[in-house]
Computed example of a mutant assay.
Amino acid sequence: MESSLSPILMIIGAIVALFLLLYILPVNLWFTAQLSGVKVNLLNLVLMRLRKVSPSLVVNSMIISTKAGLNISSNDIETHYLAGGNVNKVIKALISADKANIPLDFKLATAIDLAGRDVFDAVQISVNPRVINTPPVAAVAKDGIQLIAKARVTVRANINQLVGGAGEETILARVGEGIVTTIGSAVNHKEVLENPDKISKTVLGKGLDSGTAFEILSIDIADIDIGENIGAKLQTDQAEADLKVANARAEERRAMAVASEQEMKAKAQEARAKVIEAESQIPLAMAEAFRSGNLGVMDYYKMQNIQADTDMRESIAKPGAENKGKNK
């Protein structure tokens, strides 16, 4: 039984050893590279396995670049792969740039790729410019009318500025700022509606693409809508605010007047109380005058006649005063 199993185990071991040998020694890749005119050492392919680099990726990239007329070494491809770059996109970008006569070398392409940008998409934008639609931008002219503008910005990738250059968000922000500035400096909104190209010329003249990864080719105003009358709204709000302030001040003056009136009434009551207090002293003074002999009976009657005469004169001068006197 053991003698019958040993040949089978030997065959299985031989097959496994063959697969391991073919995995470690990628003879098929080496043979394909030789047929494609790519000079690569078999030992170098084995070392790629040990460095955890895909030999098929390196060999295929070299074959594609060689067929496209590019001279890229296996060491450069391996270095970019170990750095975490996307080798396939870099090779495709280099081939596209070469066919479109765009100056792009392997070092710059790998730098763009490692910077986190899609280098192949950047080459495509250089060949076929992209149109960016800005969001609605609201601005107010000097006459207080709000305008809402939409623009289409045609951009082309600037290969040399892709590393460290600003992106599309910066382009949109700068274009929006230019639109707001142009509309805000217009005397009235009709001027902008009649000449929308004035916005494009003003914005283009500001050099908004400086320091960005794109080159602005054109700015076209797609649509301009009339918004609210901001000037009238502000005036209305100001008038309402002034009215509230005036009402508050009037209420303050009214409250002060009411307080002053109450204060005067209190003073009048105080004065009347003093008069009443003084009048209450008259009978006591008269009694004291009788006791001391300074006031006689005839003097008292004379004073009563004078008082009666005074009351009669007041009743004649003011109708109803008699009843008032009687009430007293």
Rank of each mutant, 00 (worst) to 15 (best):
H80W: 04
T170H: 07
N75E: 15
D105G: 14
L172A: 14
A139H: 09
V175K: 10
T170L: 12
F106I: 15
K142S: 08
R130T: 09
L147D: 00
V90P: 02
V137W: 00
E78T: 15
A109P: 04
N128P: 00
F120Q: 12
A149G: 05
D143H: 05
A97N: 09
G165A: 09
A141L: 08
R152D: 13
V87Y: 05
G167W: 02
I125T: 13
I72S: 02
N75V: 12
I112R: 00
V119G: 09
L172E: 14
L162G: 04
K150F: 02
V175F: 09
L147I: 05
A100V: 09
S96N: 13
K92V: 04
I148R: 07
Q161M: 14
I132P: 00
F120E: 13
F106D: 03
K92H: 08
D121Q: 14
A109F: 00
A139I: 08
R152N: 14
S96I: 03
N75L: 12
A157I: 01
N160S: 14
S126R: 12
D105C: 07
A149P: 05
R152E: 14
K150A: 05
I148H: 02
N86E: 14
I171E: 10
A122I: 07
P135M: 04
V90I: 12
V163A: 11
